[in-house]
Design a protein around this nucleic acid. Structure first.
Length: 725
RNA sequence: GGGCCUGUAGCUCAGUUGGUUAGAGCGCACCCCUGAUAAGGGUGAGGUCGGCCGUUCAAAUCGGCCCAGGCCCA
């Protein structure tokens, strides 16, 4: 006899075994064949719009687990919003220009302008980026992320490139652009700027010198040191600086001390003459030893901060330079006083900006002092070292001189020492036309999740220097400006000219600018103008996605409802997007910004290849399935660091099985349930049923509230808890 | 070195304005079931709430210092 029909056995097509690794790809294929994303778009048309704008990952390399976290969070929100009745499109994008791609391509085809033409090089970059996009796209699809994968946005699309240029034009029109100078790594053999990655450190012999900067007003100086009357010592007073680049002294504009460091004024005799020297307390002994001075005593102690703004005499030029304060001054070497040439050093530049010091650059592209440079014109910087030392000696400013072997940046191609050299650059000026203030106003209007994001980005905006948007690179969107050769002014028709260029770029991509001859647009006037050959910082590209995507595509909207990225983007994309958008439209490009933390290992430490604690998403998907990876993301509080390990994923997998089995049990029990026949009205339900229905309703409300607040870990916590009842 | 953030059972998380023996799910141990079976049920163990010092009648919760870690700078 067959008892099977007499028993209430589970009846369901819902398999017990998930077998995710095998079955997920089949399901994804079905979604694709169904054109599921497009169907959802069509069906939800007319519903309230919810725009989550995708921040473009950089198109280089396999995705790592951080990418997975980011995309899964976005996808979860998109799907939850869709279920809540919104039209929630998702247009993924990629960041395609920039140095990392150039470097990869250089390895394959050689340097632009050397082995291949710039045009061929750009073509190779475009092809390379396209391949990387496909690679990452496949991984994102495999993750189960639903979106417009057929029509993503690429910052290298011709139309996108044209819109970048148009955005620049608008920012120009709103008068936020300024031209300035900034020190960059410079190879005098290449005659060009080098990127960070093109610099290699090698040992080099340099002359190390200690130089006197005489105090201009002794009384004022002594008062600042709070020196007791009658114990003031005697002889000239100097602040002593130590440097290994004597050739940068012609560009000196200040002497930096550390505000919190202790300094001493020392009475001593040098070559028979009494004098007083200011040195860092902790470096006094080593300095005196170096100067070969045995007898000395301390006249006064003070902190660096007390000497701020006092004036010093430049050692060989007729100018006075201020004492300034900078955190970069340390007691590692030297005297505790740092000669500052804003045109020849990064730290010097930054601190110089703070004090409004001029960015003086007397050195030409070939490393030779430009005509008009007193004492040194026509000399190459490294051979000028001797002349500088000689000059200092003549004027009694040289305290000591010795040779030093140290690690020094070199050009990776020529293996010759490089210099820092200020070159003309384009900036988005933070304080021109109210940009910083308006950005800060807009920040207050935005909802920051978690809320400390606001303080974080605020302090960054308050403190940041002007945004240098120019790069001297090949694979980037050109700064399409014409500058008057004599006056340095932009062409009066700039706005209209840029639109003409943009139209050409729409047709032929960025090559259209590089191949353009100025007289095509300017006619006879071309001879009076320089056509800028700089490219834009890639952060500018991604910073204007709101213009090139949100405002451009139908079905989207500017500003977006939500931007969602890792917390590093407070300095990156959130900031570049905010500044670009405020510079263009005076408003933030987003209503809300959500950040997630970084993935770390079981011990809470950073993942790295060398530590061997990296968890590739590909292997998780292959072993446990994308849904387990997604459930891990959903179950983790993303506000802080997110821990992942084999064990954590195993636990997640356990949780997944439990959820799955419960769903199967419910489905099988409902297999023969016909609502029209079997539905029981509320007042006929037994108390236990009413109790559980109420519980279920409460849970539902909690879950909806958790989704609204983007707190997926709450959903994950509460659901199994309920299932126990 | 600076700004911001994190630190509650093996794992993931709750813990409301400071107030009784600090909770949940998973895992673990033991037991039961063996027609929901790569399942299910029951019982139980497990925590110096990162550390120290304060404020308070009372601190996981408030304040200070420190430790470990993360992001961004220097």
């Amino acid at each position: 006899m067959d008892y099977k029909s007499t028993l209430n056995l589970p009846t369901t097509g819902f398999a017990m075994k998930a077998n995710l690794a095998q079955r997920e790809p089949e399901r994804l294929k079905r979604w694709q064949q169904l054109e599921l994303y497009q169907k959802i778009r069509a069906q939800n048309q007319g519903r309230p719009l919810f725009v989550l704008h995708d921040g473009p990952p950089y198109a280089n390399g396999e995705i790592h687990i951080g990418h997975a976290v980011n995309k899964v969070l976005k996808d979860t929100i998109i799907k939850a919003k869709t279920l809540s009745g919104y039209d929630a499109p998702y247009v993924p994008g990629w960041d395609c220009h920039g140095l990392p791609i150039e470097l990869m391509v250089e390895k394959k085809v050689g340097k632009a302008g050397v082995k291949v033409s710039h045009k061929e090089f750009r073509k190779a970059c475009r092809d390379y980026a396209a391949k990387q996009v496909e690679l990452q796209k496949a991984a994102f699809i495999r993750l189960g992320v639903l979106g417009d994968w057929d029509k993503p946005y690429l910052t290298m699309d011709y139309l996108f490139e044209a819109d970048i240029v148009r955005s620049l034009a608008q920012i120009c029109r709103n008068e936020h652009i300024s031209k300035g100078a900034k020190p960059v790594h410079w190879c005098t053999d290449c005659g060009s700027a080098l990127a960070e990655a093109e610099v290699e450190y090698e040992d080099k012999h340099s002359p190390a010198i200690d130089v006197r900067f005489s105090v201009v007003d002794s009384d004022k100086f002594l008062a600042a040191c709070q020196l007791q009357p009658g114990h003031q010592g005697q002889g000239p007073i100097s602040v002593v600086i130590w440097t290994t680049t004597p050739w940068t002294l012609p560009a000196n504009q200040g002497v930096a001390l550390n505000a919190d460091m202790d300094y001493v004024l020392v009475q001593c005799q040098h070559e028979g003459q009494p004098e007083r020297l200011l040195l860092a307390h902790d470096l006094m002994k080593s300095a005196m030893l170096r100067f070969n001075i045995d007898e000395y005593h301390v006249l006064a102690n003070c902190q660096g901060a007390e000497l701020e703004h006092l004036l010093l005499q430049h050692p060989f030029y007729d100018r006075q330079v201020p004492i300034i304060l900078g955190e970069h001054v340390t007691i590692e070497a030297g005297t505790g006083a740092v000669h500052t040439a804003p045109g020849h050093g990064q730290d010097d530049y930054v601190v110089g900006q703070r004090y409004g010091l001029p960015v003086d650059n007397p050195v030409g592209a070939n490393g030779v002092f430009v005509p008009g440079t007193a004492l040194f014109e026509g000399m190459h910087v490294f051979s000028a070292n001797d002349k500088v030392i000689e000059t200092l000696k003549e004027r009694g400013k040289l305290l000591h001189h010795h040779a030093l072997l140290h690690s020094y940046p070199h050009c990776w191609r020529h293996h010759t020492p490089i210099i820092f050299r200020a070159t003309p650059q384009w900036f988005i000026a933070m304080d021109k036309n109210n940009l910083r203030a308006q950005a800060l106003t807009e920040i207050k209007r935005v909802q920051w999740i978690p809320d400390w994001g606001q303080a974080r980005i605020e302090s960054m905006i308050v403190g940041r220097p002007d945004w240098c948007i120019s790069r001297q690179r090949t694979w980037g969107v050109p700064i399409t400006l014409f500058v008057h050769k004599q006056t340095g002014e932009l062409h009066p028709e700039t706005e209209q000219l840029i639109e003409q260029v943009a139209l050409r770029i729409e047709q032929h991509g960025i090559d259209a600018w590089f191949e353009l001859s100025a007289d095509e647009l300017l006619g006879h006037d071309a001879e009076n103008y320089d056509k800028i050959s700089d490219t834009l910082d890639v952060w500018f590209d991604s910073g204007v996605t709101h213009a090139a995507v949100l405002a451009r595509r139908t079905g989207l909207r500017f500003p977006a409802d939500l931007y969602l990225e890792g917390s590093d983007q407070h300095r990156g994309w959130f900031q570049s997007s905010l500044l670009a958008s405020v510079a263009m439209h005076n408003v933030a490009p987003y209503q809300a910004v959500l950040t997630h933390g970084f993935t770390v290992d079981a011990k809470g430490e950073k993942m790295s290849k060398s530590k061997g604690n990296v968890i590739p998403p590909q292997s998780v998907m292959a072993k446990l399935g994308a849904d387990v990876l997604r459930l891990w993301v959903a179950s983790t509080d993303y506000r802080g660091e997110m821990r992942v390990s084999e064990e954590i994923l195993e636990r997640t997998s356990d949780g997944y099985r439990r959820l799955r089995n419960t769903a199967r049990f419910l489905l099988s029990n409902l297999a023969d349930f016909e609502p029209s026949q079997h539905l029981v009205s509320n007042d006929e339900l037994v108390a236990l049923d009413r109790f559980i229905l109420d519980k279920a309703y409460q849970l539902q409300q909690d879950v909806i509230a958790a989704y609204e607040a983007y707190q997926f870990q709450t959903v994950f916590q509460k659901s199994p808890s309920f299932l126990r009842h």
